[in-house]
């Protein structure tokens, strides 16, 4: 064991490049590995999957709730005509889009593309496959827009691999990409009043009021679930405050692997019903959907680099344990 007591000076000089090259090789090995990956679906991801799967039931529940509210207000007899008309309108809206309506918020830029895009792409495919109408917007970052557009374009044409498959989705009918507007928090609040007045046009500049999809989606009450995929600290809290606390909607959160640990308290308290932690979350969702894609593929790279990181931790500690002089790092 004496050889461990003195670290060869050459190693101290070259360890960084060696580790960098090894990391690069392992990432590449993962990228070219096309084998199927077996993953257990965690409860947090399962919660997100189940929510999208059961959106129809959730919508029926909301409809019953508003019907009872309307009946109650009619029996009370003290409600204004405007309130009665509003309740009748929302009951009518909820009778349409019976498979559910989801709002997906892109809140990340190119730096987090590798982790986030697989999450949102697989959720989009899931929604399209189940006939759920999708509204897509971007949160606080204007640079999310092109990335969102690319992901949507790809997902709309990807239906043949899913069970049940779906045809090419049509903008304005099956989904709408609302784009970016400044001041996210205020904007979300305004969406509670009227989505059309908050955005007016979609990303390509088409008038929202002329789109068939918007005919029965006037405000937040017609949306069943909010999915926010965000790489920024504090951004998901906005949706938890507005989407869940204020409007009482189900919120699903997608986050980076590092940042996701911040949101487990919200999952435990029921303020969010699903959490996709990083690439693992995307890969688990793909497994649940039985449609492995880029998320599962990228997990190989993550697997090899994590194993290498553990090896380096063990190596570093063995070196530290046996070294006679405790090196200042």
């Amino acid at each position: 064991m004496n050889f461990l007591k003195k670290i060869p000076p050459i190693w101290l000089k070259v360890y960084r490049p060696v580790i960098y090259i090894m990391t690069l090789v392992l990432v590449w090995m993962g990228a070219v590995n096309n084998n199927k990956l077996n993953l257990n679906v965690a409860d947090s991801t399962g919660g997100a999957y189940d929510t999208i799967e059961n959106l129809g039931e959730i919508r029926k529940g909301t409809l019953r709730e508003y019907e009872q509210k309307l009946e109650q207000r009619l029996q009370d007899g003290d409600a204004s005509q405007a309130e009665i008309d509003d309740l009748k309108g929302i009951v009518e809206d909820l009778k349409h889009n019976e498979k559910g309506v989801v709002l997906i918020c892109f809140d990340f830029d190119a730096g987090c593309d590798a982790e986030m895009t697989p999450q949102v792409a697989t959720i989009l495919r899931h929604c399209f496959s189940r006939g759920v109408k999708v509204l897509i917007n971007t949160g606080g970052n204007v640079m999310s827009q092109p990335l969102a557009q690319q992901t949507i374009d790809k997902a709309t044409k990807d239906g043949s691999r899913l069970d049940p498959p779906y045809p090419t989705m049509e903008s304005g009918v099956d989904y709408v990409f609302l784009g970016f507007r400044p001041n996210a928090f205020q904007l979300y609040l305004q969406m509670g009043e009227s989505i059309i007045s908050a955005y007016e046009t979609d990303y390509s500049g088409k008038d929202l009021s002329t789109m068939p999809i918007m005919e029965h989606i006037r405000d937040f009450r017609a949306i069943d679930c909010v999915v926010t995929v965000s790489a920024y600290v504090g951004a998901p809290e906005t949706w938890i405050t507005v989407g869940n606390a204020k409007f009482g909607k189900k919120v699903i959160l997608g986050g980076g692997a590092i940042g996701a640990s911040d949101y487990y308290p919200f999952l435990q308290s029921g303020q969010i019903c699903g959490l996709l932690p990083g690439l693992r979350g995307a890969a688990e969702y793909e497994s649940a959907l039985k449609c492995p894609d880029i998320g599962s593929k990228r997990m190989w790279s993550q697997l090899y680099t994590h194993a290498f990181a553990i090896f380096l931790i063990v190596l570093g500690n063995i070196e530290y344990f046996f070294s006679t002089k405790k090196r200042k790092l």
Partner: peptide, 8 residues
């Protein structure tokens, strides 16, 4: 725990 280590 974050990766399927059994695949190594």
């Amino acid at each position: 725990g974050q990766v399927p280590i059994e695949e190594i």
